[in-house]
Computed example of a mutant assay.
Amino acid sequence: MHIRNYEFKARIEGIEQYEQQLLKLSPRFVGEDHQIDTYFNAPQGRLKLREGDIENALIHYDRQDLQGSKLSNVILYKHKPDGALKDILIRQLGIKVVVDKRRRIYFIDNVKFHLDRVAGLGTFLEVEAIDDSGCYTIEELKEQCDKYYEYFKLNQQDLIEKSYSDLLLEQQMDSP
Results as ranks from 00 to 15, higher is better:
Ala84Pro: 01
Ser72Phe: 04
Ser175Asn: 13
Ile59Trp: 06
Ala129Glu: 02
Leu93Ala: 02
Tyr39Met: 07
Phe8Ile: 03
Phe124Lys: 12
Ile105Phe: 06
Glu140Ile: 15
Met173Arg: 15
Arg63Ile: 11
Asp100Lys: 13
Lys9His: 06
Lys96Pro: 07
Glu55Thr: 15
Ile95Val: 14
Ala57Phe: 05
Met173Cys: 03
Leu167Ile: 13
Leu89Lys: 13
Asp109Trp: 14
Asp109Ile: 05
Ala42Asn: 09
Asp131Cys: 12
Asn155Glu: 15
Lys78Gly: 02
Ile95Glu: 03
Lys78Pro: 04
Gln172Val: 02
Cys145Gln: 12
Ile160Ser: 00
Val99Gly: 02
Asp174Ser: 15
Tyr149Pro: 00
Ser163Lys: 10
Asp62Phe: 11
Val30Ile: 15
Ser69Tyr: 10
Ser165Lys: 09
Asn110Phe: 13
Asn5His: 08
Asn5Ser: 12
Gln92Asn: 14
Pro176Thr: 11
Lys112Ile: 09
Val98Trp: 03
Gln20Val: 07
Ile88Thr: 14
His60Ala: 13
Ile130Gln: 08
Lys101Cys: 06
Gln17Thr: 10
Glu139Phe: 05
Tyr6Gln: 15
Ile88Ala: 15
Gln157Phe: 08
Asn155Asp: 14
Gly68Ala: 05
Leu168His: 00
Ile36Thr: 14
Phe8Met: 08
Ile3Trp: 04
Val111Ala: 09
Lys9Pro: 02
Leu66Arg: 15
Glu13Cys: 01
Arg4Lys: 14
Arg103Ala: 05
Gln20Thr: 01
Glu150Lys: 15
Leu159Ala: 12
Gln35Phe: 01
Pro27Trp: 08
Gly134Pro: 04
Leu23Asp: 05
Glu55Pro: 00
Leu125Gln: 06
Arg11Asn: 06
Tyr151Gly: 04
Tyr106Arg: 11
Thr137Val: 11
Gln144Asn: 15
Arg104Glu: 01
Ile138Pro: 05
Val97Asn: 00
Asp158His: 13
Leu121Gln: 04
Glu143Asp: 11
Leu25Thr: 10
Gly45Lys: 08
Phe113Val: 13
Leu22Val: 05
Arg102Trp: 07
Tyr148Val: 00
Ala10Asn: 05
Gln64Asn: 11
Phe40Ile: 01
Gly14Cys: 09
His2Trp: 02
Asp116Ala: 03
Leu71Asn: 00
Gln35His: 06
Gly94Ala: 02
Leu121Cys: 04
Glu150Ile: 03
Leu89Trp: 13
Leu115Tyr: 09
Glu170Ser: 09
Tyr148Phe: 15
Asn73His: 09
Ala57Glu: 12
Arg50Gln: 06
Asp65Trp: 07
Arg28Asp: 07
Ser165Ile: 03
Ile130Lys: 10
Ala119Val: 10
Gln171Cys: 04
Glu170Arg: 12
Leu168Val: 03
Val97Phe: 01
Glu19Met: 05
Ile15Gln: 07
Met1Arg: 14
Glu51Ser: 10
Ser165Arg: 03
Asp62His: 14
Cys135Trp: 05
Ala129Leu: 13
Lys80Ile: 08
Gln20Trp: 04
Val30Trp: 01
Asn41Arg: 13
Leu22Cys: 08
Tyr61Asp: 08
Tyr18Leu: 06
Cys145Trp: 07
Leu93Arg: 13
Gln157His: 02
Lys153Asn: 11
Ala57Cys: 14
Asp65Ala: 14
Glu51Met: 11
Arg91Thr: 10
Glu19Ser: 04
Ile3Met: 11
